[in-house]
Each structure stands twice: as C-alpha cells, then as structure tokens.
C-alpha cells in the first residue's frame, strides 16, 4: 500500500501543502484565513484539501495529539519478521489501534513501528499482546531523550 509515486503538484498545491503543515487558526473560518494568505478562495482551499485526502497526498488533517502530555507514552518498536510471514504479520500488527505507523526497513529488524498509548503501561501491554498474536519478539526502543528539531516538507 501507499508506496506511491510523487504526486503531480502545481504551484498553489505546493504553497497550500506547505501552509497546511502549520497550525490551523482556532477561529470561526480558519480556511478563509489560509485562503486570504494565498490569495485564493476559501472553497478552493477546502476542495484541494479534500482532494489531497482522497488521493493520499495528506493522510490526515486534524489535531496532533501529544499522548505524553496526558500521561501516556510513545515508543518505537521493532521486530525481525521472517520474509514468508511478512504480510500476515503486517496485518496483525496493523490491527492494533496503538500502532500509529509502521514501516518496513531493510535490516534484520525489518519492521519498525511506533506505539502510542494514553497510559504508560499501554506500551508494554500492547507489545506483549503483539508478541502473543504473532509469536515473535517485539523489541522496544523507548526514547530516553529527544533532541529538538522540526521538519516541514517543502513540496
């Protein structure tokens, strides 16, 4: 899924996709604020955003939750999945709502996913539940320290 080729984007798409990665104003008509900044209509902004979501250019538009601030946790996890079981394990891991994203990577540890839980115990509980579901060990790599960066992708 989703190994998609780069989308064909025009100049407005590029500007809009850049702007949409910033915090949306908390006001009555926030898309009108964006539209004014870009010199287009509010309807144009909404139509394009709907298209980005439909085409998978944007995977989600909404609040980004910081579960750690509400007492929960994030944790990077990895598994070494035998090639012949890869698709089956992908489906099983994907079924857990605590798995926020999952990537295949080229390494002996070939499946890397991020767990998010609103309670700290949720991380280990979910990891154990995944181990039980697929009969493979899950390695947890909790962050010990975060070095601050913020990337925005210039389309």
């Amino acid at each position: 899924m989703r190994e998609r080729r780069p989308a064909t984007l025009d100049d407005l798409d590029r500007q809009l996709l850049w702007a949409l990665q910033d915090d949306l104003p908390l006001c009555e008509r926030p898309f009108a604020v964006l539209a004014t900044g870009l010199g287009v209509s509010e309807e144009e902004v909404l139509q394009r955003l709907r298209r980005y979501l439909a085409e998978g250019i944007v995977t989600r538009f909404g609040p980004f939750f910081q579960v750690e601030r509400m007492g929960g946790a994030f944790c990077l996890a990895a598994m070494a999945v035998p090639e012949e079981r890869f698709d089956e394990v992908t489906v099983a891991v994907g079924a857990f709502p605590q798995v926020a994203h999952n990537y295949r990577r080229e390494h002996a540890l070939n499946m890397w996913f991020v767990l998010a839980a609103t309670r700290p115990e949720g991380i280990v509980e979910t990891a154990r539940a995944i181990e039980n579901a697929v009969s493979l060990p899950v390695w947890l790599f909790p962050k010990e320290r975060e070095y601050f960066v913020r990337l925005r992708l210039r389309p």
Binding site: P6, L9, D23, G56, P63, F64
Partner: peptide, 28 residues
C-alpha cells in the same frame, strides 16, 4: 473553542495540521 484552546495551550494538542505523505511530496 474553549476546550481546544486549552488542550492546545497545555500541549496535549501539538497543532491542528496536515500529516503529509512523504512519498507523495517527493520525499521518497
């Protein structure tokens, strides 16, 4: 509005924004 503003202010909501697909934007 009031609850979103508060959740945002305390950092439970980081931002309200688009999650772009890296691949689609050419970051393959």
């Amino acid at each position: 509005f009031a609850r979103l503003a508060r959740l945002h202010a305390v950092g439970v909501i980081r931002r309200i924004a688009a999650a772009p697909n890296h691949y689609a934007l050419g970051y393959v």
